[in-house]
Design a protein around this nucleic acid. Sequence first.
DNA 1: TATTGTTATACTCTATAACTATA
DNA 2: TATAGTTATAGAGTATAACAATA
Lengths: 165, 165
Amino acid sequence: MCAHSVTALHTGTTAALSPGPSCLEDDFGFALGVISRAHAKALDAAVSDIPGGARGHFVLAAAVRGEACSQRSLGERLGVDRTVMTYLLNDLEQADLVERCTDPGDRRSWRIHATARGRQRWEELCGQAEAAERQVLSVLSEEDRPVFRSLLCALAGALTRQEPE
Amino acid sequence: MCAHSVTALHTGTTAALSPGPSCLEDDFGFALGVISRAHAKALDAAVSDIPGGARGHFVLAAAVRGEACSQRSLGERLGVDRTVMTYLLNDLEQADLVERCTDPGDRRSWRIHATARGRQRWEELCGQAEAAERQVLSVLSEEDRPVFRSLLCALAGALTRQEPE
DNA sequence: TATTGTTATACTCTATAACTATA
DNA sequence: TATAGTTATAGAGTATAACAATA
């Protein structure tokens, strides 16, 4: 359960060359870009019938979980401008995947709920999204995969919790 | 050296809810997006004086290492269209950071070399880029950070090696 | 007065198509 | 004939500004 292949590998690297990593893929930001693009490509193909592609899929996922309290907060979490959120939600609503419900606490804002069709579509998409994830992670060893995934989500969670301050 | 905090944490999650992760930050793609945006924001601020921002910084990094054999191959590695590479390299060349040198083996293509100023600028930027990386990773525990980084780079390296085929 | 959301508009960024020169 | 790079142009995507409704 211990001794992850890369854990052993990483001890004592990046010390030989003077400044920075030894090859482009060892640059943190570049590596992040490679993985993001690979996953975005796979996910976009998997959810291509959803308006807004991967982005629409995330909105749907938030709506299904009841985490879409307002267009603004959801947009900030997704890194999407509030004006873009309007168009995106128009498309998702027109596709009968989500609906805008009045917020009794604040009549300026919308709560985004998933429709019955949206819920069903989302459950179907989950399998495909997981396949896209597996495709990207498949190059890691079987023991490294869950470690990487956990750290990734822990980091994202911490960053999200930190940002609002 | 073992017993990573998250390694322990992850055993036995994501089994409670029927399909998919329990909150948006537990979605692989979403987590990837959160981290990418956070890092891109920090890096773009750190290298804002480089033409093309973070993207220009990666080109410069490749040029310094002698990894920029042609605009096309570099563009593919960076996920940038070849027509966009032309404009980007024009700007970097005009800023006296890189230069296009003829490839003796193929007179159609350019080899991108860093200028003396480009090399110097890159060494200065390395510290700032590392600061941006540290800023993002700071929310992880000190023992988790190198593990995550190593897995990230291993994954990126494997994906890059896999793509050309 | 500040905030949520909408709309129209302007802008940036990216890709398509056509071209030159090499292979 | 295919490929690397360039250029002009069209298109997609995004943000800015002004507005209405609500807090």
